[in-house]
């Protein structure tokens, strides 16, 4: 028996066949090549193209009025969409994770809907609802309100597309944490409000930030849905991704890549922040398990 046990332990460390290292290095090289081709190279190209004609041209492309307007509109959209989705997402996750009610699974499905629908369709839905020939079209025209092909439409479409990020990040974590800490707070005399602010919210703060980060990245980068509702009016309803497309179609490559480099920068910042947050999150999870 003892002999059998020790041989078993012996085989736990794989015995290497001669020449196995070739296979291993081949696989690693393949993976690196793949990574370089599809991730690093495009990123490098974006910046290389943007700076092809030097700093001055790069800066000029970014400070040109239409570009500034696109940057401004993108920031404005994110500034409205992210806080709204933060609040709605938090409320939805809270309701779903901490309470039992009828139609809960239906609500979960509904929250996931924007992810399962093509962004172009999402945009079209808003055109059908608020466009001139749409359901609310006549009423909007009477009251002189413009939603589609204007800023409100862009905000609405972006909000729809990015809605699930916060809620989806929070629901599993909140469900895992259960409700005993909340019950403890209530039995110690805390009000519902105090319980939420002092117990529920701090317990999910890193997951919440993570969701907000992803939501923000998508809100700034969204193309499909926004493209449908925007109308591409330069200096008025162009967001950064749309502006990049227009410039590119006009063979203005340097300017297109200059604006694109800003979006790429956003992606890099998001990735770094995401890594930091993931590290915090995993630490929180370890805390809980410990």
């Amino acid at each position: 028996m003892a002999g059998a046990a020790s041989t078993f332990r012996g085989t736990a460390k794989p015995v290497e066949r001669p020449g196995a290292w070739i296979g291993r290095w081949l696989l690693i090289a393949l993976a690196l090549l793949f990574l370089g081709m599809f991730i690093v190279l495009p990123l490098v190209i974006v910046f290389a193209e943007a700076f092809r004609q030097g700093w001055m041209v790069y800066l000029a492309a970014l400070t040109e009025p239409d570009a500034l307007s696109a940057i401004w509109l993108t920031l404005l959209t994110a500034a409205i969409v992210v806080p709204c989705n933060l609040i709605f997402g938090l409320l939805a996750a809270w309701a779903i994770a901490k309470f039992e009610f009828r139609g809960k699974s239906f609500l979960v499905t509904l929250i996931d809907l924007p992810f399962s629908v093509s962004p172009v369709i999402s945009g079209l839905v808003f055109v059908l609802l608020f466009g001139l020939q749409g359901w609310f079209g006549p009423w909007l025209r009477e009251h002189d309100l413009k939603i589609v092909f204007a800023v409100p439409g862009i905000v609405l479409a972006t909000m729809f597309v990015t809605f699930p990020f916060v809620a989806r990040e929070l629901i599993p974590m909140m469900q895992e944490q259960g409700t005993t800490e909340e019950e403890a707070a209530i039995s110690l005399g805390a009000s519902g409000w105090q319980t939420f602010w002092r117990v529920t919210l701090p317990n999910v703060r890193w997951a919440l930030l993570y969701g907000v980060l992803l939501c923000n990245a998508r809100a700034m980068g969204e193309f499909g849905a926004v493209s449908v509702v925007s109308g591409h009016v330069r200096g008025l309803t162009n967001t950064m991704p749309l502006h990049v497309e227009i410039l590119y179609n006009e063979y203005n490559f340097v300017a297109a890549f200059a604006v694109a480099s800003l979006l790429a920068l956003l992606a890099i910042v998001t990735l770094v922040a995401k890594t930091v947050l993931e590290w915090r999150l995993s630490r929180d999870i370890k805390h809980k398990a410990g």
């Binding site: 005993t180 800490e181 019950e183 403890a184 707070a185 005399g189 703060r205 929180d284 805390h287 809980k288």
Partner: peptide, 14 residues
Amino acid sequence: NVGFVFQHYALFRH
């Protein structure tokens, strides 16, 4: 005004 000690303690983790 009841003190409740939970089975898995339910200490506030943060």
